[in-house]
C-alpha cells in the first residue's frame, strides 16, 4: 500500500518549526528595534510657529540658557519665555521680521505663542529640572547639543532605562556646577568617573532608584 502521506511530508513539521522560529525571531527583532522610545521619540522635530534657532542665540550670540528658561534653576519645569522676554531685544533687533509676527501678536493680545512641546514625558513621571541642574547634570545629558540646533529635535530617548542609566552611575555624568550650562564643556573621559565620584560624594548625591523617586 502506497503511503497516505507523500515522502516530503516527513520534513514538514521540522520546516514549520524552523519557519516559525525564524519569523518569530524577525518579529522580535522588529519589536525590539521599533517599539522603544529610541525610535518613537528620538528625532521628533515639529514645525514651530516661530523658526527660533538655538544655534543663533547661544552659539553665535553667547546667551545663557537661563535668560529664557528662567525656571530651570528653581522649578521642576524649565519653562518657555513669554513674548515680552523675546521683545526685550526684538523690539529693535529684527523689529519688522515676518518670522517674529506670532511673538509680536502675542505681545499685543496676550495670547500665548503656540509652541509645540517636544520633550513630553508621560504624565506619571515627575522630572524635576532644578533638582538635576543644581546637582551637576547638564542640559546636554537629556537635550543633546541643543545649543547648536537650528531647529529643536528630540535628541535622547528619555525612556526609563535612559534615566536609570544615570541614576545608577551618576559619576559618569556629573559635572562641576559652573559647567552645567556650558554644553561644549568636555572632560577627559578617563577623568570623568573619578571627578564625578568626587562630585557625587561631596554633594551627597544618592539618586533615587525607588519607584516613588520619579513616579507618584
Amino acid at each position: 500500500m502506497p503511503g497516505v502521506f507523500p515522502k516530503w511530508t516527513n520534513q514538514l513539521p521540522l520546516n514549520i518549526a524552523a519557519g516559525l522560529a525564524i519569523a518569530g525571531a524577525a518579529v522580535a527583532a522588529g519589536l525590539g528595534y521599533y517599539f522603544t522610545p529610541k525610535y518613537t521619540r528620538v528625532g521628533y522635530q515639529p514645525i514651530q510657529p516661530v523658526p527660533y534657532s538655538h544655534a543663533t542665540h547661544v552659539e553665535q550670540l553667547g546667551m545663557d540658557c537661563r535668560y529664557c528658561h528662567a525656571g530651570v534653576e528653581r522649578s521642576w519645569f524649565a519653562g518657555l519665555p513669554d513674548a515680552s522676554r523675546c521683545m526685550n531685544c526684538h523690539h529693535q533687533v529684527l523689529a519688522g521680521d515676518p518670522r517674529l509676527a506670532p511673538v509680536r501678536d502675542s505681545m499685543q493680545t496676550g495670547a500665548p505663542v503656540a509652541w509645540i512641546q517636544i520633550h513630553r514625558t508621560p504624565d506619571y513621571v515627575y522630572f524635576h529640572h532644578a533638582a538635576h541642574i543644581r546637582r551637576g547634570v547638564s542640559c546636554l545629558h537629556c537635550h543633546g547639543r541643543v545649543d547648536q540646533f537650528e531647529e529643536v529635535r528630540h535628541d535622547q530617548p528619555l525612556s526609563m532605562s535612559f534615566c536609570l542609566e544615570c541614576h545608577r552611575r551618576p559619576e559618569a555624568y556629573l559635572r562641576p556646577l559652573d559647567q552645567v550650562y556650558n554644553l561644549g564643556w568636555n572632560t577627559d573621559p578617563a577623568r570623568q568617573n573619578e571627578q564625578g565620584r568626587l562630585l557625587a560624594l561631596t554633594g551627597d548625591m544618592r539618586p533615587p532608584l525607588s519607584c516613588s523617586g520619579c513616579h507618584r
Binding site: P37, T40, V42, Q45, I47, Y124, R153
Partner: peptide, 20 residues
C-alpha cells in the same frame, strides 16, 4: 531607522495613563 527626523508626534505604543 531610529533617530530619523520626523515631523509627526511620537507614537505612544502602550499609552497606559501616559496622558492624564
Amino acid at each position: 531607522l531610529r533617530g530619523c527626523a520626523s515631523r509627526r508626534p511620537p507614537i505612544e505604543i502602550f499609552p497606559d495613563m501616559d496622558r492624564q
